[in-house]
Structures are given as structure tokens and as C-alpha cells.
Amino acid sequence: MVRWGELMAGSFLLLSLMACSPSEKLTNTEIQGQWLYDDHCAECHEKPHPELRKQPPNLHGLFLAKALPSGTPATDEQVSKTIIEGRGTMPAFDKRLREADARQLVAYLHKLK
């Protein structure tokens, strides 16, 4: 039992370390974007919210598809616009984020897979 526990702890530590040092290094802009993502987006987009009318879509691999969940083309401009103006039940972030913030977020979203 003890050995199994140690093995588990060891595996977890190793995996955590691996996860903490991503193979792909992020640029400063992308790191800024990651901070913004954690602060402003993750709360809705990383976790199921069964009480919400529409489930906020997961944003991993957003730019890998041709179209955004809304059906519009997956372009930087469209994503920036959605962040700033909101869309459907997603609130507008125009009072909280500036265009430059939206650019950093978009840069990070390209890396979020």
C-alpha cells in the first residue's frame, strides 16, 4: 500500500513538472494573453456550467477549425470582436479589456490546444 502511494505521488510530481514546463515556449505576448485568459475567460470556458442557458464553448484548438462555434470564420478579427463586444449570452468585455488585451488573448488562444 505504502509503495503504491509513493508510486502515485512520484508519478504525480513527475507529471506536474512536465505539465509545468511546456515543450513549446510562449512568447511574452502569449504569456500576457495566458494571464488574461485565466482571469477573464477560464471561469466560464474551462468548466461546465449546467445552470447557464448556453454552455460556453471550450476554446482549446479554437483556431484549428475553419469556423468558430458561432459559425463565423475563425479569424483573429472575429475573435477580438467577440471578446470586446460579446456575443449571444457572452457579456461584452469592452469596459474591462482594451484592443491590445484582445490581441494578447488571441495570441494565446492560438497556442491553446
Partner: peptide, 19 residues
Amino acid sequence: YTRCPMPNFCPRLSSQFAK
């Protein structure tokens, strides 16, 4: 308020009112 970003606050209220 429509800009509320906290899913457990205004979005929850409006979603549940919609229900």
C-alpha cells in the same frame, strides 16, 4: 448588469429566468 462576467451571478440569474 449585462456586462457581468461571473457565471454564478447575472448569467445564472438570466439563464434560470429563461428556464
